[in-house]
């Protein structure tokens, strides 16, 4: 089985979010970038397929040279090859079209992406990619098994789960559940050393157009002081929730 894992390069979850140039650009100053958490679950599931069922695992990112450390980390976790499409990621449609080219050239059976990136929270690249390459698609995927050319996936729905089957090629939008938190691998020294020697191929973009553009940013208004209620006077809390917030 040939697996492609799409990796988006995002600010670490603890990052302070600030903007520069008149609130038009994300301020990367002092920000640590990581593999998007949803992609990390997917990558770990891909490693499981590699170990248990035999598979090759490529990772891909659409981005400029500054994303290479993130791809190297994916190689250190155990991916075989990395591909970087040499163009800035501007919107979901553009990224999906660039990935479609990589997917078609590589003839992958399974493409694992994340439910969403935690930076722009687009939640669109895997679905667009699947439709562009006419592959099957399962979103919010929390479990995936493959036998022969048939996949069984579990998808999270609002308030429950749904079991789906589909033939390969398949694209998933994955998340926690694909593997457990405790299964996530921290690259060890050997993995890091090996990753240096693994191929990281830079390919030129097809030059897809974006259909959306992030024009500017804003931060939420600062929160007012919390209203503290004495633990021996919970009637006051009920009163506040009923009369002030009108929430009960």
């Amino acid at each position: 089985m040939k697996i492609l894992v799409c990796i988006s390069h995002v600010p670490d979850t603890t990052s302070k979010i600030n903007f520069t140039e008149g609130d038009t650009k994300f301020d990367t100053n002092g920000v640590q970038f990581v593999i998007n958490p949803n992609d990390e679950f997917g990558l770990t599931r891909a490693m499981w397929f590699k170990e248990k069922q035999g598979a090759s695992v490529d990772v891909v990112n659409v981005g400029e040279a500054d994303t290479e450390p993130t791809l190297r980390k994916a190689l250190a976790i155990g991916a075989d090859n990395a591909i970087r499409v040499n163009t800035p990621a501007t919107d979901g449609f553009q990224v999906a079209k660039e990935l479609a080219k990589v997917a078609q050239d590589g003839g992958y059976d399974l493409i694992i992406a994340g439910r969403e990136s935690i930076d722009y929270n687009g939640g669109m690249v895997p679905g667009m990619l699947a439709k562009l390459i006419k592959a099957n698609f399962v979103n919010t995927c929390v479990s995936l098994e493959v036998e022969g050319d048939k996949a069984t996936a579990i998808r999270e729905i609002d308030g429950g789960k749904e079991t789906l089957t589909a033939n390969l090629p398949l694209v998933i939008g994955g998340q926690k559940g694909l593997v457990e938190e405790s299964d996530l691998k921290i690259p060890n020294m050997r993995g890091i050393m090996m990753a240096r020697k693994k191929p990281l191929n830079v390919v030129e973009p097809v030059g897809a157009d974006a259909k959306t553009k992030a024009e500017k940013f804003a931060k939420p208004a600062p929160k007012g002081e919390v209203k503290l209620v004495d633990k021996d006077n919970l009637d006051e809390l009920i009163d506040l929730l009923h009369n002030d917030a009108k929430a009960i």
């Binding site: 979010i17 935690i118 722009y120 929270n121 959306t212 992030a214 500017k216 804003a218 939420p220």
Partner: peptide
């Protein structure tokens, strides 16, 4: 955007 840490104005 940024999981509710900010807003983003996007043109389509």
């Amino acid at each position: 955007a940024f999981t509710n840490k900010a807003f983003n104005f996007s043109s389509i």
